[in-house]
């Protein structure tokens, strides 16, 4: 982004984009366009400057403070430039229980930036964020728009390397249970392959291993039974428990 393009009104040469956004909302609700306009600017420039706030206010016939008021309400609009790779580590309970505190510390150490800051070279920002809605595949890291799920130690290092090489992988999507597809190696499995690469075998904990097994099996029931057997003690507890239950 060079100085000149920053100074020119953002929407000046994008009448179609502007028209599309404004056209989404009915006449009675023109102001609704404020959030999508903020999004549009942020996605292009990685933050929303005062000049852009004023421009958006102008477009909508609002005061700049009104736009600022909306912008400051939300945690994903930034008034300062964020790094090229905006690394967001979920730190809420399910992720915490899966080790997100250590994950975050590890990223601080390896990326050389603390939460809430952008690295001097502008490449990386680190931020602790609240629940990303991916609790069953914790811990989760979001980099810009993309989710990376079940980020264990090996995967965290893989992510760091990818960030430094400016070559981020496709989303790592993890599925287990009824979101894993109809018992065949569907959506979840390719994500996992991409994610793990050679490290697959060593990087897996028991959970992820059973996930892979379930997702890869054509008959989840068989896989589940196999898991139970493999889990020994826990499975025995589970069976006893459900037999002893009131059902």
């Amino acid at each position: 982004m060079n100085e000149l393009t920053t100074l020119r009104p953002y929407f000046e040469d994008k009448p179609a984009v502007l028209e599309e956004i404004l056209g989404r909302y009915p006449e009675e609700g023109k102001r609704s366009a404020v959030m999508p306009l903020l999004w549009e600017v942020q996605r292009a420039e990685r933050y929303i400057s005062e000049a852009r706030v004023a421009e958006i206010a102008d477009i909508l016939g609002l005061h700049a403070t009104e736009v600022k008021g909306v912008m400051s309400f939300y945690s994903t609009y930034h008034g300062e430039p964020v790094g090229k790779h905006h690394v967001q580590v979920c730190s809420t309970l399910s992720c915490k229980l899966a080790g997100s505190d250590e994950l975050c510390d590890h990223l601080v150490e390896r990326l050389g930036v603390v939460p809430g800051e952008t690295r001097a070279d502008g490449q990386v920002s680190l931020q602790k964020v609240e629940c990303l809605g991916s609790c069953t595949t914790a811990p989760v890291v979001q980099i810009n728009d993309t989710y990376y799920e079940r980020v264990g130690r090996a995967r965290a290092d893989q992510l760091v390397d990818a960030i430094e090489q400016d070559n981020l992988p496709a989303p790592w999507r993890e599925r287990y249970g009824d979101n894993a597809g109809l018992g065949s190696a569907q959506d979840g499995a390719p994500g996992q392959d991409e994610a793990n690469g050679q490290e697959e075998a060593s990087a897996q904990d028991a959970t992820a291993a059973s996930h892979a097994e379930a997702a890869a099996s054509a008959e989840s029931a068989v896989a589940a039974a196999g898991d139970d057997a493999a889990n020994g003690e826990d499975a025995a507890k589970g069976n006893d428990a459900s037999e002893g239950g009131p059902a």
Binding site: L93, S94, L97, A98, C135, T136, T137, A138, R175, Y176, G177, D178, N179, A180, A206, T207, S210, H211, A214, D227, N231, D234
Partner: peptide
């Protein structure tokens, strides 16, 4: 949606 300290977290219908 089962998460936290379980062996196989996941979403179940």
């Amino acid at each position: 949606q089962i998460s936290g300290g379980v062996n196989k977290p996941g979403v179940f219908e």
